[in-house]
Nucleic acid binder design. Structure first.
Length: 429
RNA sequence: GGAGAAAUACCCAAGUCUGGUUGAAGGGACCGGUCUUGAAAACCGGGAGGUCGGAAACGGCGCGGGGGUUCGAAUCCCUCUUUCUCCGCCA
């Protein structure tokens, strides 16, 4: 969401941005919303003038009543009633204009960073950099569902009975490995200086609408029956919502947090929930980073944040790459974004394990998150990035540490969380 | 879940019963000064107060959120939220 003043003063740039994002159909909206805003301002002026007269007249009435000049007071009252009558229509019109303006402004995308590659859709995303050798082993790597099965570590059949498709039981060592990864991810980020948080796993509807679009909400969020509560799709929702309508002290910036939560997603419309295994599921767990900082520091943080995820996966012996989101694939609220992808030696391609984004002031504007600075308040920049989402991260570790004999080498970093265990050995069944 | 109390600006806190120059007393913090080697304390002085429009003058909104009554609401009514105390239930 852009500042409407910015839009009015930079119409050409806003239109150029729309073209870069292949959203030509929205070009007329720029002039339309600007014109609506002018009308709104004129209207507001008239409303304010009338209100001023009402306020003045009303306090006059107070004086007249005290002095016992009842008739004069009655005259004035009539005038105020008149004013109030005309205000009703004007206020209604202004309110409608406001809604229209906001609706349009919500659809105008954030100004993307100059460095974002131009491209129509995800097929034109650009590989930035590889970290670690994408090894193709001489032996075959089984599907992660099979690896887990051999370790007696997964039961989707029972989950299907209890909860349906898209759920799973993790069992034994695999379940423990999954939790070990989350714990390690938590400590990894604490060591980077992030403040560890466990947020609410349910949030109210006003927070939901603040952090996502309506269609996103429909496609992702599980609603609790008879309550104004939704299960979170990511802890980012809770963590950003925490600051809604708040003014933070400038000295407190940057606020760097790492939050843990389970994540619940309906995944409506996305294919793959039918797919076997744990790649796309309704429920997973995630260690997240969320940063609020001064606008000028956002790009430094962005680069720091994705590199932390890279470092994290490298410490688990997983080769990764960063894939930059091109202009057309970039969500409207984002300034710049990249995915961290892990190497799959089985499929011999990279797959998404996390996503790092800087939203500039877009989220802050929608939610009114400001910092109190020397020269007044300003909107903060917000960023978020996945440290680890599991079971996806678990798939990466299992595949990349799979040995020919079917055992799994537990990466050293995880061993303290696995009771010192170094290997997972398949059961003979 | 039941009963009660509360929510005022950066913080504390008057005002609410009895509606009317209340942008809202008084403090603290803040800024300047006296004193001091320096600081603290004390004392003297000072401005601003949130937000939107405006170059400014000025004006609108605004006393937890939303709605209502009224010529006029921090103040009266309804509703929601949060916090505290007590009871019940519970990992």
């Amino acid at each position: 969401m852009l500042d409407i003043k910015f839009l009015r003063e930079n119409k050409d740039a806003v239109k150029e941005n729309l073209k870069k994002k292949f959203q030509e159909e929205k070009l007329p909206l720029v002039d339309e919303v600007s014109e609506k805003y002018d009308r709104k301002r004129n209207l507001q002026q008239r409303i304010d003038d009338l209100r001023k007269e009402r306020n003045e007249t009303s306090s006059l009435i107070g004086g007249l009543m005290k002095d016992g000049k009842k008739e004069e007071a009655e005259e004035k009252k009539k005038r105020v009633v008149e004013i109030n009558t005309s205000l009703v229509d004007l206020e209604k019109e202004a309110e409608e204009l406001d809604v229209e303006i906001k609706k349009i402004m919500m659809t105008i995308p954030q100004m993307i960073d100059a460095s974002v590659p131009i491209g129509k859709d995800d097929s034109e995303n650009v590989e930035n950099e590889k970290f670690g050798e994408p090894v193709v082993p001489t032996y075959e790597i089984p599907h992660h569902a099979d690896i887990c099965a051999k370790l007696n570590g997964i039961d989707k059949e029972s989950a299907g009975r209890t909860s349906g498709n898209g759920f799973y039981y993790l069992m034994g060592d695999v379940a423990r490995l999954h939790s070990a990864m989350i714990s390690y991810a938590r400590d990894f980020m604490i060591d980077k200086g992030f403040n560890y948080c466990v947020p609410p796993f349910m949030i109210r509807s006003d927070v939901v609408t603040g952090v996502m679009s309506f269609t996103e909400m429909e496609n992702m969020m599980y609603k609790i029956e008879n309550e104004d509560l939704y299960l979170i799709g990511t802890s980012e929702h809770s963590m950003i919502g925490k600051f809604k309508d708040q003014i933070v002290k400038e000295a407190e910036l940057p606020i760097a947090m790492t939050s843990y939560s389970p994540c619940f997603r309906k995944e409506v419309g996305s294919h793959g929930i039918e797919e076997r295994g744990l790649y796309r599921v309704h429920q997973f767990e995630k260690q997240e980073m969320v940063v609020l900082c001064k606008p000028e520091d956002a790009m430094d943080w962005y680069n720091k944040m994705w590199s932390y995820t890279v470092e994290f996966f490298r410490s688990l012996d997983v080769p990764v790459r960063t894939l930059e989101c091109c202009s057309g694939d970039l969500a409207d609220l984002k300034v710049k974004s990249c995915d961290v992808e892990a190497w799959s030696p089985r499929q011999q391609k990279y797959f998404e394990v996390g996503s790092c984004s800087t939203l500039g002031d877009a989220q802050a504007r929608r939610l009114s998150i400001r910092a109190k600075g020397e020269n007044g308040n300003y909107l903060v920049a917000t960023l978020n990035n996945t440290v680890l989402a599991t079971p996806r991260g678990l798939i990466a570790v299992l595949e990349n540490n799979y040995r020919e004999d079917g055992s799994i080498k537990i990466p050293e970093a995880l061993r303290p969380y696995m009771g010192g265990k170094e290997t997972l050995v398949p059961k003979n069944n």
